[in-house]
Design a protein around this nucleic acid. Structure first.
Length: 427
DNA sequence: TCTGGGGTCCTAGGACCC
DNA sequence: TCTGGGGTCCTAGGACCC
């Protein structure tokens, strides 16, 4: 085996991100418990620290905790993606200035490659500076975990959040400190160890991260998978997961939603599918890809077991890859006609695109009439531009004008940072 | 009445080929 | 009675992540 590299990573993670974004623009709620809800106002997906302290759990359906929300005066927000995405961009831009090799891992966290940085500056001080800068420039508070591997950096970040005495920045480069922390951490809190695996590990007497770090990597690989072997090595300070600072291109695009109410009407359901396909096509073009494989699915709600259940999906391979909304809508409609069965109350539907190509790199199927519309690129370009500009919307009639099935978003905050009309006002 | 959405990776097993 | 062996590709399902 080659000599271990002296790697160093930082994981920067925004605290209670969605809830923090909402509070930024509502100083009146500074110390009020708030929660952010999933699409359709269905589940709790983010909680402010006050809401956490009141015992509101992550992921629970709102209706199950309605009483608690009311009793404690917890303020609810529907999720406001435009706001969170914009705030995320601001945070990431700030981080990039400190460490150009940045992997944006999710909307609220990023890995930094700090390899070699300790020769220039103290890593703890570096982390503290990053935290202070993000706080000052964006108003978002972050935790920073620094360690020789990504998995250990995750654990360092976990500690930074859990123990206030750390000031939300933990440097875990030192092996003795690693050992002490690993012994304190439940194995289920290790990155990559989910619910299923946790149960299996505990049955084998592996309870802490330290227990896992000391398991035999080869044996565990045969019993679990190569992912497990990697996790064990990473816990021991051997970096197996590189920084992916160039975003890999997507393998698939999914657009799906639960409906605001159950849908029975065929036209209405078809409009929803058309809407999702339109959105998926936009995402496809923003990736600068064409796709060959298209799937559509519709289903009833598994949460109402005494109602007749129906769930169906169908996948079609196109003769030629396309990124034209019109082609994709036509395919979606054909598939939908074959899937639809009357007499069910549909709860959710969606589309999936896969098998991507760079435009123009694929030999056209010459047995098939070339369906490439000559004005396709120009038309799609103009549509995308108008729809992005905030000036209004252009879309195809098949998605319907005033949809009944639209999402429930009863507690939506204004688009403070992305819409002129919604700019916060200071009196 | 009311239960999110969007991804990735890994593995096992079958089809198929020589 | 007795029916190879090895490789590749594809797919479905599981597990995990945020």
């Amino acid at each position: 085996m080659s000599a271990a590299k002296n790697t160093a990573f930082a994981l920067v993670d925004c605290n209670n991100f969605y809830a923090s974004c909402e509070k930024l623009f509502r100083p009146d709620l500074k110390h009020t418990p708030i929660v952010v809800l999933s699409n359709n106002d269905g589940c709790i997906v983010a909680r402010s620290k006050e809401a956490k302290a009141l015992g509101i759990k992550m992921g629970v359906p709102v209706f199950q905790v309605q009483d608690a929300l009311r009793k404690h005066g917890i303020v609810c927000f529907s999720s406001n993606y435009a706001l969170y995405a914009d705030m995320s961009n601001r945070v990431m831009t700030t981080l990039e200035e400190e460490a150009p090799r940045l992997e944006i891992y999710s909307i609220d966290e990023a890995f930094m490659d700090l390899t070699g940085v300790e020769r220039v500056t103290d890593l703890l001080a570096f982390g503290q500076r990053v935290k202070a800068k993000v706080d000052k420039w964006t108003g978002i508070t972050v935790g920073v975990g620094i360690a020789p591997t990504k998995t250990l950096a995750k654990l360092a970040n976990h500690a930074a959040k859990k123990y206030p005495a750390t000031g939300s920045v933990v440097d875990l480069m030192n092996p003795d400190r690693q050992k002490r922390l690993l012994a304190l951490v439940d194995v289920g809190d290790v990155w990559g160890v989910g619910r299923r695996t946790t149960a299996k590990l505990k049955a084998k007497g592996i309870h802490t991260a330290w227990d896992l770090a000391n398991a035999n990597a080869k044996v565990m690989r045969s019993e679990f998978s190569v992912v497990m072997e990697r996790t064990i090595r990473e816990l021991n300070g051997v970096s197996c997961l590189d920084l992916e600072w160039v975003r890999p291109t997507k393998q698939q695009i999914i657009c799906s939603r639960s409906f605001g109410h159950k849908v029975t009407d065929k036209r209405e359901l078809g409009e929803a599918i058309a809407k999702y396909m339109t959105r998926a096509a936009e995402k496809l073009r923003s990736e600068q890809r064409c796709c060959r494989v298209v799937s559509v699915f519709i289903r009833t709600s598994p949460f109402i077991p005494n109602e007749p259940q129906y769930s169906a999906s169908l996948t079609v391979e196109l003769p030629n890859p396309t990124d034209d909304t019109r082609d994709l809508l036509a395919v979606a409609e054909r598939i939908f006609h074959r899937l639809y069965r009357a007499g069910y109350r549909y709860a959710k539907g969606g589309v999936m695109l896969a098998d991507f190509y760079e435009p123009g790199t694929v030999q056209q199927d010459f047995l098939c009439v070339d369906s490439t519309k000559t004005n396709s690129k120009a038309l799609m370009g103009v549509m995308d531009k108008i729809n992005r500009s905030g000036m209004g919307q252009v879309f195809f009639a098949s998605q319907g004008v005033s949809p009944q099935w639209a999402m429930k978003r009863e507690h939506l905050s204004p688009a403070y940072t992305t819409k002129w009309d919604d700019l916060p006002k200071v009196w």
